[in-house]
Simulated scan of single mutants.
Amino acid sequence: MSLTRSAAEGPMDPPGRPARRVSMADVARRAGVSAQTVSRVSNGHPSVVGSTREQVLTAMRELGYRPNSAARALKYGQFRTIGVILFTLSSVGNSRTLEAIVDQAAEEGYAITLIPVAVPTRDGVLGAFTRLGELAVDAVIVIMEIHLLDAATVSLPAGVPVVVVDSDADDRYTVVDTDQIDGARQAVRHLLDLGHRTVWHVAGPEESFAAERRATAWRTELEKARRPVPPLSRGDWSAESGYRAGLVLAEEPDCTAVFAANDQMALGLLRAFHEKGKVVPRDISVVGFDDIPDSGSFVPPLTTVHQDFTEVGRRCVERVVRQVRSEPVEPGTTLVPTRLVLRDSTAEPSA
């Protein structure tokens, strides 16, 4: 049996010889376009019309073509890749922010290289930054909700475009974050406006920048209203930690309203109050923070502060890409607004 292969079908090497890498010229022949058009499609250039782009992409898939990122970087000075350094994916905020960054990067024609920080220590962060220097990335987005980036001994490599999410990086870097303070303020103000004498708080972990901002806003809003400031409860973002805090708060006779620093801990509160015979919101009102997709399905549906993770991700990518393009981007913090979503877990205090 003989095998034949036309030139249009792509390269074929003699038996026993390793197949050569499919070239841009091979793709151009298969698609019936110029090599320059293939290059533009490969680099995400917007000037290629849709039908031609689809022809080229089909040829790439059929031939198994993979762009040579090293050669492309030498020619264009870019790898079209953004590194993302992050501490953990276990928190809802981090995972949803990363998802938004990936989606927006794809829109801009960039891939993402994930660089996790295995150990939440200064050395762990420095190790991630060291690995960054070994990878083919044009820029980096840092999702670091703990204060390690604030240490004077920790800094990113010079000359690398950087955007930071959820960290107190001062004016050293461009920072994009949810307006944590205003979101917490809205939650506390809502409960006070309903007529509650004060608001108890289940905070996130002490090392978290977001938890610190939300707890500070809670305390400030109560002091501004000249209301008593109850003892702060401390959780770790998990529903289990909210549950443990709820078992204690259910025994406090003056506790009629609780602001939880995230929706998962609020879920734990709801379970604890139910087990202790407290009816939400008749006996105790509860407000969360995040507006996770399931928060409207809690029992009762949770009043919570909505974070726009999609907008945070979009702004991160937009600002870091502008830096890659040598467009001016001022350091400092950009805050994405929050809004209070009213559901059935809050009400006026019972007489």
Rank of each mutant, 00 (worst) to 15 (best):
E275M: 06
S285P: 11
F289C: 13
G288S: 12
G235A: 13
G268N: 05
E251H: 10
D291F: 09
L249E: 01
D263A: 04
E251W: 00
L269Y: 04
G235I: 05
A261T: 07
D283V: 13
L267A: 15
P253T: 07
E240Y: 14
E252P: 00
E251N: 10
K276N: 07
C255G: 07
A266P: 04
D254C: 05
P293V: 10
V287G: 09
A250G: 13
P281D: 04
D254Q: 14
E240H: 15
G288V: 12
R282I: 04
G242D: 04
L247V: 05
V287Q: 08
D254G: 14
W237N: 06
W237H: 12
F259M: 10
D236C: 11
D263R: 02
A245R: 03
A257C: 11
G277H: 06
E240T: 15
D283K: 12
S285E: 09
N262F: 06
A260P: 09
A250L: 07
D254A: 15
G246P: 07
A260H: 04
G277W: 08
S238G: 08
Q264H: 14
V258G: 01
F259S: 03
A239E: 15
R282M: 09
D283I: 13
W237L: 12
E251D: 15
D263G: 04
G235T: 08
D283W: 11
K276E: 11
D263C: 05
D236Y: 10
A260W: 01
L269M: 10
R282E: 15
A239C: 11
G235Q: 08
Q264G: 00
A260G: 06
I292V: 15
V258A: 03
V287R: 10
D263V: 06
L270H: 02
A239W: 09
G268Y: 01
A266H: 00
I292R: 10
A239I: 04
H274T: 14
H274P: 00
A250C: 08
T256N: 12
K278H: 09
M265C: 05
D283C: 13
G246L: 02
R244A: 14
G277I: 07
V279I: 13
L249D: 02
A272V: 06
D263M: 05
D236S: 12
R282G: 07
